[in-house]
Amino acid sequence: MAFDSLSGFLAMGGHGVYVWAAWGVTALLLLGVVLHAHAERRALLRHLRRRVRREQHHGASGGATTPVSHQEGHARES
């Protein structure tokens, strides 16, 4: 341990401002990047689900998976 107290650790021998500014910005950016990636994935999955559901509903062709829309799709193709 390079410090003997918490206040000594926070003060960083008078360089606290510099050390914590650099570390703080790094931590915030890394955290922000992770949160953004999670939000991005959730939003895309939500969007995809909604689209699939909508197309099943309207019986549109292309990737629909329910038996009903399959038949509709085939009917239109033939």
Binding site: M1, A2, F3, F9, M12, G13, G14, H15, G16, Y18, V19, A22, W23, T26
Partner: peptide
């Protein structure tokens, strides 16, 4: 941040190196 020894010239500001 807490265990590496301080630099003999730069003191604790050298800990910025780790980011």
């Amino acid at each position: 941040l807490a265990f590496a020894p301080a630099d003999y010239q730069q003191g604790n500001s050298f800990r910025i190196i780790y980011v």
